[in-house]
Simulated assay, not measured.
Amino acid sequence: MTFILGLTGGIGSGKSAASTWFEAQGITVVDADIVAREIVEKGQPALQQIHAAFGDWVLLDNAELNRRALREHIFKDPNARKVLESITHPAIRQSIIQQLQAATSPYVILVSPLLFETNQHELTDHSLLIDATEELQIQRASQRDGQSIEQIQKIIQAQMPRQKKRSLANDIVLNDGHLDHLYSHLKPLHNAYLQRSKQKKAVD
């Protein structure tokens, strides 16, 4: 079995920049956010279950998921969120496992902003947190996404507190400089993960 690294970080932390760097080194990346979108695409069983649970309003005229309407609905109704998660989380987990097992790179990375919140870290051997101060998170996310500071703060507050993530992660990279600064920290970690992968395969 291949060594699996869980990569996480809050909004604007630089998690995506880190995963792109690892991909450039030839490492397969499974992105939980992409998987979450794939499992609710037209014709997928999870979308059919969502339709059955919530009704016709959850679909657009072309039979695709009305993401905005559903997002607004679950934001107002915690019980609706629980129903949705009971449908999507098992489907996401199953797809992630399949993709991790299919990877052929020296090791494989699961990128997930909710690695610890959704217990996806249980699927990994080791975890890496890309960390940043809240001020930097807000600055980067507002420049990148054009969202208001208030919206970004709400997203940060909805995620696991920074210190809690730091206490759970095996490795932490503080991304408080330029990209070259981030990459200089990732390179030795990449070499360490290659070694860990060799050791795991030798044991297996």
Rank of each mutant, 00 (worst) to 15 (best):
I172L: 14
S127N: 07
K154F: 02
P106S: 08
E122A: 13
E23R: 15
L128S: 05
T124Y: 02
A32I: 01
I34A: 10
L174V: 10
K200N: 05
A53F: 01
S184G: 02
G14N: 00
L179S: 02
W57E: 13
R67N: 05
N79R: 14
G26E: 15
E117H: 08
Q101S: 11
G6V: 08
A63N: 14
S112N: 00
Q151G: 00
Q98K: 15
R37L: 00
A36M: 03
E23G: 12
E41S: 14
N191A: 06
Q139S: 14
T104L: 04
R71F: 09
S95P: 03
Q147V: 05
A32P: 01
H185I: 01
N66H: 15
I74L: 11
V83L: 14
P161D: 09
A36E: 06
I50S: 12
E135I: 01
L123T: 09
A80L: 11
D131H: 00
L115A: 07
A158Q: 13
Q25K: 04
L65F: 15
G10Y: 05
L60E: 03
L115C: 12
N119S: 10
Q120P: 00
D61T: 10
H181C: 06
L100V: 05
E23H: 03
W21S: 05
S13T: 12
H51T: 12
N175H: 07
A18C: 03
N170C: 04
A69E: 15
H126T: 01
A24S: 15
M1D: 04
Y183R: 10
L114C: 04
D145E: 06
N175G: 12
H73I: 12
Q163L: 11
S197E: 11
P106Y: 01
I149A: 12
G177T: 14
L47P: 05
S13L: 04
S86C: 07
G146L: 06
V40C: 04
N170G: 12
L84K: 15
A91D: 05
S95F: 02
A69L: 12
Q94S: 13
V111S: 08
A17Y: 01
Q199F: 06
I34Y: 01
K164V: 11
Q151R: 12
L59I: 14
H178W: 02
G55H: 06
L136D: 11
V40F: 08
M160N: 05
L174S: 04
L7Y: 03
A32M: 05
L182Y: 04
S197P: 15
Y193Q: 10
V108S: 07
L115E: 01
Q94E: 14
A36K: 01
K15C: 06
K164E: 11
A24L: 13
Q120F: 12
I130R: 07
L186T: 14
G43C: 04
A91H: 07
P90F: 11
H51G: 02
F54I: 09
L70R: 10
R144Q: 00
L168N: 13
Q157Y: 02
D180R: 06
S95C: 13
H181P: 01
Q163N: 07
R140P: 04
